[in-house]
């Protein structure tokens, strides 16, 4: 078991390493570099040469990669091309803001998804299930910007309760983001709940049809006790991994939502950095998102292992 944990950790580290290589290579293959982007039309001759010298861009690629990667390991992501500010500092607040968005969505979405998923499974093929499942499919198919626009229309324009756009600066305190953060949270919750609840529904249905659930009923265990004691602990294990995927998606894939609401998070920063051709910042954000992805999935695997007696006791008795 311990060995398994170490192996997973090792594999995660290797994945992040490979991703960093791919990010770096991808940026390297693109025509132009930070200097051509920064100098724009003046990018020629002496000026370009000086800029490249300043940024160290004329050194061989592998040397630059090693410097970038070892810097990233120490938390130093380099300087941005625009304004030469430390990227770590720029990214810091943005990451916090995106985490705020993700955290609020999880806080609302996970319990909601578990509740609705279990309800849909227990009332399978009846009205509650049909209603929940239909809305869930709608939530998964309607593009986020459409649902976002509808929410803005309803809550900001018709009702006028919540501002439709976030004007708070990136480095404001968390309290300043309320209530503006609520609309993007609602959109994210909507989509994420749909994904998780469908997994929860199918695994609860499967567990309710299992031999052990039948046996519990035939041993005289009351219905709700079967559900909570025998079925849910086994049925919710597969949900852990879906929750992890959703969290990873929340942190990395909120680009559209942040753009629609003008929310100062990591996703919008990435869009901005790409349109500004600020390649060091793009690289750094891509690396952060990849690390979060790997980290969250790793955490989910470990959690599954701890929650599942089969895996937990693997080392104790064999066969």
């Amino acid at each position: 078991m311990l060995r398994l944990v170490f192996r997973r950790l090792g594999l995660g580290a290797i994945t992040v390493g490979l991703v960093s290589l791919i990010i770096f290579a991808g940026v390297e293959i693109l025509p132009g570099d930070a200097c051509t982007a920064f100098l724009e039309r003046e990018a020629q001759g002496k000026l370009l040469e000086n800029c490249r010298n300043d940024l160290g861009l004329n050194r061989p690629a592998h040397a630059r990669y090693l410097e970038w990667a070892s810097g990233a390991l120490r938390g130093d992501l380099g300087l941005s091309a625009n304004g030469h500010k430390p990227i770590a500092e720029l990214v810091g607040y943005r990451l916090r803001n995106t985490l705020l968005l993700a955290f609020c969505s999880m806080l609302a979405g996970i319990p909601l998804a578990l509740f609705l998923g279990v309800v849909a499974a227990l009332w399978r093929d009846r009205l509650p299930d049909l209603a929940i499942s239909t809305v869930a499919i709608a939530a998964m198919t309607i593009p986020e910007f459409v649902s976002a626009t509808i929410l803005i229309l309803v809550f900001s324009i018709w009702l006028g309760w919540i501002p439709g756009i976030v004007l708070t600066p990136a480095d404001a305190s968390i309290a300043d983001f309320f209530p503006a953060v609520l609309l993007p949270v609602m959109v994210l919750t909507f989509v994420m709940t749909a994904h998780i609840l469908r997994t929860v529904r199918s695994s609860v249905i499967e567990a309710m049809a299992s031999d052990y659930a039948q046996m519990a009923a035939l041993k005289g265990v009351p219905y709700w006790r079967i559900v909570f004691r025998h079925v849910l602990p086994n049925a919710l294990l597969p949900a852990i991994n879906v929750v992890a995927l959703t969290i990873a998606w929340l942190l990395g894939g909120v680009v559209v939502i942040e753009t629609v609401f003008n929310y100062p998070g990591l996703g919008r920063m990435m869009i901005d950095s790409i349109s500004d051709r600020d390649l060091p910042v793009t690289q750094a954000i891509a690396l952060i998102i990849a690390s979060v992805y790997v980290g969250v999935n790793l955490a989910a695997d470990l959690l599954t292992m701890i929650a599942n007696p089969r895996l937990r006791t693997l080392h104790m008795r064999k066969g």
């Binding site: 299992s210 031999d211 052990y212 039948q214 046996m215 519990a216 035939l218 004691r229 025998h230 602990p233 086994n234 599942n308 007696p309 089969r310």
Partner: peptide, 12 residues
Amino acid sequence: PQNSGQSLTPSL
């Protein structure tokens, strides 16, 4: 039951 291996709740 027929298949006691599957009829015992795995998490208990």
